[in-house]
Amino acid sequence: MPKSTLTDEFIEPFLLATVHVLNVQAQVEAKPGKTQPKQASQVMSCDVSGVIAVISEKYSGSMIICFPEKTFLKIVSSMLGETYSEVNKDILDGAGELTNMIFGQAKIVLNQNGHTIQTALPTVVSGKNHDLSANGKGASVVIPFESQAGNFFLELGISEAA
């Protein structure tokens, strides 16, 4: 069985990037909880999500940041310095931008450590209680975060190349 890419060494840059990006860009202090393997039956209940491909020569997968609506509204309101009470097209891509920044920061660290993660563009998914999977074929982990804006999740899923 090949060694999984989803080691602490791989996960930690995403975790640290999430804390850093939310702190600098949205002035939100996020605290990561325990990283856990995603169970096959586990449903991620998201209202707004940012998704980005995590692809290198050796593996492919994705990173998802999953926000309940209330959390997302508080984070974007803090980012933009304006209060938003409902999710609309003007703020929806905030999830994409946060995803882009977290991915970008993690990618710098991982590529410095010998990975070859490629540039990617994020996409945004919205809709009450939607469920996404970072990786339908291989292993995934879920990292819960707590913050003064509310809870949210980061999911990382990777399939090793054959």
Binding site: Q25, M79, L80, D90, D93, G94, G96
Partner: peptide, 12 residues
Amino acid sequence: DDMLTMRKTVIK
């Protein structure tokens, strides 16, 4: 910027 929120951030 292709992201409206980022344009808003810089413009603000």
